[in-house]
Computed example of a mutant assay.
Amino acid sequence: MDDELKRTQQGVLLAILAYTMWGVAPIYFKALGDVPPFEILCHRVIWSFIFLAVLLYFTKGWQVVKETLRSKTKVIYLLITSITIGINWLVFIWAVSIDHMLDASLGYYINPLFNVILGMIFLNEKLRKLQWFAVALASIGVIVQLVVFGSVPIIAMVLAFSFGMYGLLRKKVNLDAFTGLFIETLVLLPVALIYLFILADSSTSQLSGNAWSLNTLLISAGIVTTLPLLCFAGAAVRLRLATLGFIQYIGPSLMFLLAVFVYGEAFTPDKIITFACIWAALVVFTWDGLSNNSNNKKLAAAQKKEALDVDITNETLIQDLHQAHNKPNKSK
């Protein structure tokens, strides 16, 4: 029991670290405000690839990479996921650079609800009544912003859709996050190298002409990308999905606080209504998840008790038959 408790505590700590790092990541990208978003993305791909390659060398993980690359199906899936996560990264960096961090926060708040819809469409998962209610609340928030205020949360929708599709496809690949990210950065690497060293023509595109502080930030993109993912991977194998799902709200919540109270983004009426609907939807969604998990636990305990009672009854019956068989015959 102590080992299980320790494992859970480790998982909670790793999950908090992962989502906290994701939540404060805009501070890092704000510090790169002079660098074009696509250029930042290229650095993110290149330095993440190098960082992951070094980690694979020390953890002897190359065999898994080789086996994965031999599977045509997995390679096709990873080609698609590399494009999907590349779009997600680029839109997020762009949103931060143009002071639309609130939209990015909204996108990652919507993501869990969007995942439920994707599961229903592609995995034939059935939605419970409260899940339908949560999705309806979120939809109302988006529709109000669209109809009443005439604005569409495009950034939020693209981030939610791209990250949701990424998660769905990665689930189909059934590959650990570490190996999967390495192959995804490997796919994106040629594009990043060609753009950065041949096509890019900005004031920051030549590393030799940059200040050492800027180059340090650019090289750190590998750590900023990979470290929270490693913490997340460690948490995922130690925690129940319900616990992990609850902790995930740390990320967008930190983005929201940074956007409003640090970087002074306007929390306009359309944003207030949309966020209120999304937050209400997430409360319903989380409550449903906790209730369903509790009911599943009770059902499992009842089934276990029933099976135990059957075993005890069968064992008693066998003993009685055995005693009857071995009882001396007292016939005259």
Rank of each mutant, 00 (worst) to 15 (best):
Y249N: 05
Q248D: 02
I219N: 05
A211M: 08
G209P: 03
D270V: 13
T225Q: 00
I247Q: 02
T268N: 04
D270Q: 15
G264A: 05
Y263E: 01
Q248I: 11
I223D: 00
L241A: 10
A266W: 04
G234M: 10
S213F: 10
V260W: 06
Q206R: 12
S220G: 03
G251N: 13
Y263L: 04
G245E: 07
E265S: 14
R238W: 02
F261E: 03
P228W: 01
L239E: 06
L229V: 14
N210T: 13
T226D: 02
F261C: 04
G251H: 12
Y263F: 11
C231Y: 12
S220Q: 03
P228E: 01
S208N: 11
I223T: 08
T225C: 00
V262P: 03
I272D: 00
V262F: 10
A233R: 14
P252F: 09
L230W: 09
I247Y: 03
A235L: 06
S213K: 14
G245F: 08
I250L: 02
A235W: 06
G245V: 13
I250W: 01
S208Q: 12
A211P: 06
A221P: 05
K271N: 05
A259Q: 08
T243D: 05
P269I: 15
S213V: 15
G264C: 03
Y249P: 11
L230Y: 06
A266Y: 06
W212V: 14
A233Y: 10
V237W: 03
L207Q: 09
A211R: 09
T226W: 00
G234Y: 05
L217T: 06
L227K: 08
F232V: 12
S220I: 02
F246L: 15
L254W: 08
L214W: 02
L257W: 11
T243A: 04
A235N: 07
L218A: 03
L244T: 15
G245P: 15
A242G: 10
F261Q: 07
K271Q: 07
N210R: 15
S213N: 11
S213A: 09
L241Y: 11
I250Y: 00
L244F: 10
F267S: 06
N210Y: 12
V260P: 04
S220V: 01
L230K: 08
L258H: 11
A236E: 11
V260Q: 07
Y263D: 02
Y263V: 12
L229S: 10
L207H: 06
F246A: 14
L244E: 12
I247L: 10
L227N: 05
V224K: 01
